[in-house]
Structure formats: structure tokens, C-alpha cells
Amino acid sequence: MKKIYSIWKREIVFYFTSPLAYVLTAIFLLLLGLIFFNLFVNFVENVQRLNPESVGVAGLRDHVFTRFLGNMNFLFLLCAPLVTMRLLSEEQKQGTLSLLLNAPISNWQIVLGKYFSAVSLLGFMLFCSVIFPISIYLAGMREVSVLVVGYLGVLFNILAFASIGVFSSSLSDNQLVSGVVSMVIVLFFWFISWFSHSVDNMILSQLMQYLSVLFHFDFFARGLISLTSVVYHLSFVFFFLFLSREKLEARYW
């Protein structure tokens, strides 16, 4: 555990002593603020005026919070590859991976140290965004459980995106290639549910839906914790971290 912590600490210090963490968080919050403002103004000016039934807590939840979460989730889809693409690629490129591989630590420890550092930065960005649900809370939506579970859903997606990012960065010593590969894999798991509707085979269609991060995110966004979704996310993370570990192990053979 101490060695995972050492690797985590090294990465965190890098993130916060370089402009990366600050610039990324600032852009993320700026975009999120614009989205939130737009949703809120739209809710006040249009939704309430045209559809008086949607006024109140339900309206805030459906027209502001749920959409806000969806947009934030998409922003994390874009940010996660930026955060993770250097993790193992950079080590390979500058020859420092040998330092980790020569040390008496397991490949699991290397992968987990890197993974937790990426999750920590993305988690920090998520934490910075709590100002928005607090605003919604103050605006009258007092369903704290919905707010918390919604955020938990985003956190689960962050865990999944970061695991894909770590795996992608183990594939190449080129950060850009790793970033693009990561983005493609994340988008695949994002859009797969869209294509599930056009598949005739029922089992295949259901399988495609189950594999989609959006499908599972819907539960959380509605304030529901589904055990299936929790298992899905945890096995998703384990699968990609296992592949990353195997990729490092393959260097030995």
C-alpha cells in the first residue's frame, strides 16, 4: 500500500505543480458553469412559462439537474483521456518505466498508483463542481439523496473512464495516440446503447445496452442505485486495470 501511495503522490505532485490540473479544472468549471446557467435560464424563462405543471422540485430535477449531470458526464468523457494519456506513455517515452519495473513492486501496484492518481484529479474536478448542485438545493430542490446518487453515478463513470485511460496509456509511448485510443474506447461504450435499438437480435440488443455506460448512468441520474450498475462499473474497472497490468507483464516476456 505504501508503494501505491508513493506512485500516487508522485503523480499528484506532477499534476498540481504543472498547469495541467489548474487549466483543466478551470476550463471544465467554466464550461460547466455556462451549461448550468443556460439550463437554469432555460428552465426559468421557457419551461416554467410554457409548462406550468413542471414548476417546482420535479421540474428542477428533470430539466436542470438531470441534464446538468448528463452534460457533466460528457465533459468527463473528454477530460479523462487528457488526464490519463500521459500516465504510462510518458514513462515509456522518457525511459522511467524501467525505474518502476526494476523496483521490487508488482505491476498491480504500478497500475493502481497511476489509476488512483488520475481518479483523484478527476474526483477533485468533480468536487469543485458541487457549487452547482448546492445552487439547485438552494433553489428549492431539497432531494439530497437524488443529488448525492446523481453525483455517485458521475463518480462511477469517472472510475470507468480512468481505467480505460490507464489501459490506453500502456499501449503506446505516444501520449496523443494513447489519448485518441482512450477516447475511441470511451465513445464506444458511450454510444453502444444507441445502436442497440437497431439490432434485431434481442439478446445482442440487451447485451449492447448492458455494456453501455449511458444505460447504467440513467439509473443514477434518476436517483436510483442499481446493484447491477454498481457491479457493471466495478467489473468494468477491474477488466481494464487487469488489461493494463497484463500489458506491463507482457514487457517481461
Binding site: 505532485v13 525505474l99 521490487p104
Partner: peptide, 30 residues
């Protein structure tokens, strides 16, 4: 791994780290 101090042909150095911090990191890893 524990008993060999290995310097590869390209020294495994992090350019963004200070020398002391780097050595501290290596000591912790080992």
C-alpha cells in the same frame, strides 16, 4: 530487484522532479 541497483543506458529520470525528491521517491519505491 531488491538487491540490484540498475542504471539503464538512458537514466530513468523525471525531468520535472528535484534531485532530492527523486531520490526520496526511488527510496520509497524500494
Amino acid at each position: 530487484k531488491k538487491n540490484i541497483g540498475f542504471l539503464p543506458e538512458t537514466p530513468p529520470l523525471y525531468p520535472d522532479m528535484k534531485v532530492y525528491d527523486y531520490l526520496h521517491f526511488v527510496a520509497e519505491l524500494n
